[in-house]
């Protein structure tokens, strides 16, 4: 049993509810004890373009709050994971920055600490829980379904700080999907970006990024895509219809699942326990193959 703080960030608890529901139901069954961390807000990732110090301050805050609880952080969101690991590294390397942040936090009664372990779902499951343990729990293997793992940018980069996955040759996500009985494989855009961060600048161009990605995945004959980032999910799943209209290509259509949802299906949880009716992409076909229906 490993005990972690469930750090939800912004997008998951305000919009991407299926990730929160599936994580809350799946992880404890894999031996991960989730401890609520409601006092933690945004990691600051969306603020770095406006002011980098605001980003650093927000992540320094989360690291320090976690340290007060004396537990590792589990980040479900790729952006949160990158922020916390990057800021931890920056603060450990830069003494004057550390002093500055310590002063800002002292004003609000928080002592700056960075000695906190940070996990993302992918490395927690792969490296701590272990692929074999997951394999043992599988009741309904995802046999015959070829799934494209889509780690998302910030699970991989920047690689000058510790990352959950290898930036050039990410394998952990695929290993987890293989443990569920699914087929996996290569496609050139695996390390690519979903375009979410471009949305405030231009929805049109961001949707073209999505369209290009789904096209690439389909060219390599995958039946579905799986991600572990709420932004990637929002783009590939919720914005799939808009991306199809934007480029006028009817073939842009693919089921998209959170990794936690696929694990849940394989260990025998119901669609309701996995928030599957919130997926907006055409997931029904894959569910049918597994003998599950959305209403069940």
């Amino acid at each position: 049993m490993v005990k972690v703080l469930l750090y939800l960030g912004c997008t998951i608890p305000t919009k991407q509810y299926a990730y929160e529901i599936s994580a809350r139901n799946v992880l404890p069954r894999l031996g991960v004890e989730l401890v609520e961390f409601p006092e933690a807000g945004c990691c600051g990732f969306p603020l770095k373009g406006i002011n980098k110090n605001a980003w650093i301050y927000m992540s320094a805050r989360i690291l320090s709050l976690a340290s007060m609880r004396n537990l590792p952080i589990l980040a479900l969101c790729n952006g949160c994971d990158t922020s916390l690991r990057k800021i931890k590294t920056l603060l450990n390397e830069d003494e004057s920055l550390r002093k500055y942040m310590a002063k800002l936090l002292a004003n609000e009664g928080i002592e700056l600490h960075t000695d906190v372990e940070v996990y993302h779902v992918v490395d927690l499951l792969h490296d701590v829980v272990g692929v074999n343990k997951i394999k043992e729990l599988v009741k309904k293997p995802l046999t015959g379904i070829k799934i494209a793992s889509y780690p998302g940018c910030h699970l991989l980069r920047p690689s000058d700080i510790p990352r959950p996955e290898d930036s050039v040759d990410p394998r952990k996500f695929d290993n987890l999907l293989s443990a569920l009985g699914a087929s996996v494989g290569y496609y050139p855009d695996k390390g690519g970006c979903c375009g979410a961060t471009m949305l405030p600048y231009s929805a049109k161009y961001a949707l073209r990024v999505v369209a290009g990605k789904i096209k690439n995945i389909k060219e390599f004959n995958f039946d579905a895509v799986s991600t572990s980032c709420p932004y990637c999910m929002e783009m590939l799943d919720a914005k799939q219809d808009a991306a199809r209209s934007e480029v006028g290509d009817e073939s842009i259509s693919i089921p998209v699942f959170y990794l936690t949802q696929l694990i849940g299906l394989a260990i025998g949880l119901s669609p309701k326990e996995l928030g599957l009716s919130l997926n907006l992409s055409p997931v029904e076909g894959v569910l049918e193959k597994l003998g599950v229906s959305l209403s069940g």
Binding site: P13, T14, K15, Y17, P46, L47, L278
Partner: peptide, 20 residues
């Protein structure tokens, strides 16, 4: 988003979502 982070601590308040 930045204003929401200042006022609410997150980029958005929790919103209502639609299923298919």
């Amino acid at each position: 988003m930045a204003r929401n982070v200042i006022e609410l601590g997150r980029i958005s308040p929790p919103i209502e979502v639609l299923s298919k």
